[in-house]
Write a protein that binds this DNA or RNA. Structure first.
Lengths: 282, 282
DNA sequence: CGGATCAATACCCTGCCAGTATCGATGACC
DNA sequence: GGTCATCGATACTGGCAGGGTATTGATCCG
């Protein structure tokens, strides 16, 4: 199976529309139709059910969508990492570290400082992004190493080392009745009138149905809490980012959050190894 | 980057010889030379240093060899798993489980029996193979689930659940002086005259240099021990497979061996999920 | 019963990939 | 030192795959 065929199929499977998929791919619709047919013939499996009004995925098609995306990421990663290892790129042999904007700034600063002091340290570019992005960047080779947070992020497919564990706090508008308490339980904050917990996007970028505002990152969330439109449960370390309009109360029975450093299992880079070693020694 | 280019490069990188690689790929040598040149041009990176007498990998080339193999495995897995999910294959929608021949027979039998009793269980094909093969089969989609043994097998890139932990025993020829002991230490058996520990192949199929006989699987190893040509340190459960010529003594300070069930992180198959759930409940 | 939408088909053409033949460089051997 | 063998690169050619345009056929809508 060629990556071109995979790209074509993934486009159609995501759009569920040959015309739009062809447009996205920058080709005409007929070649796309034929390419998918050929792919189906070679696999001996129907991937799509088409009527002239709707295209839907078959069972095999759903499998290929998931597996195909992973395979395309792997190919993309191979390409990017090879480029990065090229001598012509030696001008910037830096590492790319990706983490959430909401992550502990102290831990990150400490790590970067400690690593920079190591002999043979290379420049580290830091990318901040939303939770779903991180995994993708690491998987497709745009990043070398990530700081992830269990249990929120999936660490499947990566090597990881645990760095720190912390409890969670409820973030509430300043002056809310609950803020006088020394601690609360999850049950205390799940049904607060007018202060629903927010909805985070699924990995595919869509939001689950239900009440609560949609948020993409932690800054948005804190903004909503300050506006009195939501409440939140966040790792303790976010307290450093709270300003006057917000208050935090420990949540006793919230799951503990573990910060881990993650890197792709094939990494043979000394820089990644050094950074990980530095991190585990903090 | 197309998978064809990757296949070509991996072949050349493994053979370090354009002629042999071309033969292996079933094409002539000139197209192969051109394909690699084109790949290098597109990546903007030299992958191979060629003289007319020798071909060697550059830094970027080594990266692409490792990453490219992983990517090709991912593409192969996508293809195989899609085929398996096709309705035409519904005649055999079975699971493929891969494990070492030396693994605990009881654990495996127990697992298969328990799973077969589950509602909705599908037939399970069992593949037995050497340690290095397992990872590959799981990674390239020929197997759905594996029983691996930490710390011997790398579980990088897979989801895993721990099933059981056991100590290790020294396996010695019957009648050896040490067999009268109730327990031994690693130090007692590392330097035994005439009974070296064996060498296992690296993931690439080559053997590390040093003394000791080369073995590929556990049966070979036990044979060598029975012949008085080696000794071994193996998980306790191998005792069930020892016959009269062999004796086992617990090794106090050998690392504990954990049997884990592993599956690819993208698996959305209910059968795999059921099998894993069954395994963790044993 | 038209018209709109959308995938499939028919047909053509271009460019890429693979093949054969050959060259050029390098090391081996007498 | 000359000759030969080895091995990768280059030159040239042909077939076919993949892409484009035009059109058909099926289905839903008003």
């Amino acid at each position: 199976m060629e990556t071109r065929e995979l790209r074509y199929f993934v486009a159609v499977a995501e759009e569920l529309h040959f015309g739009r998929a062809a447009q996205r791919l920058g080709i005409a619709q007929p070649p796309l139709s034929r390419a998918i047919q050929q792919l189906e013939r070679r696999l001996g499996a129907a991937l799509l059910d088409r009527t002239s009004r709707a295209v839907t995925l078959t069972e095999a098609g759903s499998v290929l969508l998931v597996e195909g995306r992973a395979a395309l990421d792997a190919v993309g990663a191979a390409e990017r990492r090879t480029r990065r290892a090229a001598p012509s790129a030696t001008g910037r042999p830096g590492l790319v570290l990706v983490t959430k904007a909401s992550a502990s700034r102290e831990l990150l600063a400490e790590l970067l400082d400690a690593y920079a002091a190591e002999p043979g340290a290379v420049p580290v570019d830091v990318i901040l992004c939303g939770p779903a992005e991180q995994e993708r960047l690491l998987r497709d080779g745009r990043a070398d190493v990530a700081l992830l947070h269990r249990p929120f992020d999936s660490t499947a497919g990566f090597h990881t080392e645990e760095l720190s564990t912390e409890g969670q706090v409820a973030v509430l508008p300043a002056g809310h009745p609950l803020t006088v308490r020394a601690q609360v339980l999850m049950a205390d904050i799940t049904g607060l009138p007018g202060l629903p917990l927010p909805r985070w996007p699924d990995p595919d970028g869509t939001y689950p149905p239900g009440p609560g505002p949609q948020v993409r990152d932690h800054a948005q969330l804190l903004q909503l809490v300050a506006l009195g439109r939501a409440c939140a449960v966040s790792p303790e370390s976010c307290r450093a980012q709270l300003h006057g309009d917000l208050a935090a109360v420990p949540v006793l029975d919230a799951p503990k959050v573990t910060t881990v450093i993650a890197w792709p299992p094939h990494s043979r880079s000394r820089a990644v190894a050094d950074l990980v070693r530095t991190a585990t020694r903090l």
